[in-house]
Amino acid sequence: MRNPFRRRSALDLSPGAKVLSYVLLLGWTFVVLFPIYWLAVTSLKLPIQVNSGPVFFPFIDFQPTLENWRYIFVDLRNDTVRPYINTVVVGLSSAIIALALGSSAAYALVRFHYRPRIGLIGLFAGCVLLAAVAIGLGAPWQIVVVSALGVFLILAQTIGRRFRGRGLGNSDIAFWLISQRMLPPVAVVIPLYVLFQRVGLLDTWWALIITYVATNLPIVVWLMRDYFSTVPVELEESAAVDGASPYRIFRSIVIPVAVPGLVATFLFVLVFAWNEYLLALFLSSANAQTLPITVAAQNATRGPQWWYMSVLIMIMIVPVILMAIALERYISRGILVGAVKG
């Protein structure tokens, strides 16, 4: 048993350090909150109040107005609500899928050793590429995908067995994954556009979800790999001795221990998909447009419409903040300690 009193005294800060900590924390809080406060007050100003020099406090140095909020919610109505729904659906589903796929991949990379052969990888990449080119040239994509997979499986089963390549390791797979994020979006957006156009998925949720899952997976894999590697392997081994299946071990031992990491990663990929601009701009138009595009659209021929933009940004961050508040408690010591204690 631990002794709560002794522990408390050892970990607690001295009064002086406490004051200093508070000063620092409050200082950064101000740095973080002031720009957001400025957004909030700007959303209550008329253009004339924004343009004629700074005013800071509603009712004190300017008369606030709800005109901008009215414009966004009443005049624009559907042009605000539809992107909002799109953003929620695309953000949440892509984050969940990326987390599910990515964390299992990360766990596999930590616990198992893969030695894929270059030849087979090249073969698979080649098949994917051929399929993509064929689709790009206008072949019906369903047939192309099925036949490409068929070709790959046949080749892998026959010639594939004879490949004698230098073996790669887990680290190469991981590095290859993260390297997929190195090409800036401007370079991939037109090819992706053509790809989704040929598959007929442009301007649908699916195009955005698939893209965000693919772009976010490397981050999930990398972050979760580090969290999983801190899980003591003994726990799993003893469970394995008790006859638990790998899947069960993963679900009921590894996952609970890695909850803080999962939550942090989830928040990150959610935010990323929530806020992504360039890919969303091209893969969507009327139906699947997301909110960042609405925000950017407030800068048109008349220059940035700060007041409308502020409203949009405010309503955009509210759900994510609520989610952060709800999830914050999972990033806390108690759960983790409890889990490790089993």
Binding site: L281, S285, I293, A296, T301
Partner: peptide, 8 residues
């Protein structure tokens, strides 16, 4: 149907 995208 009028569809809009950012000016830029």
């Amino acid at each position: 149907k009028v569809v809009t995208v950012p000016f830029n």
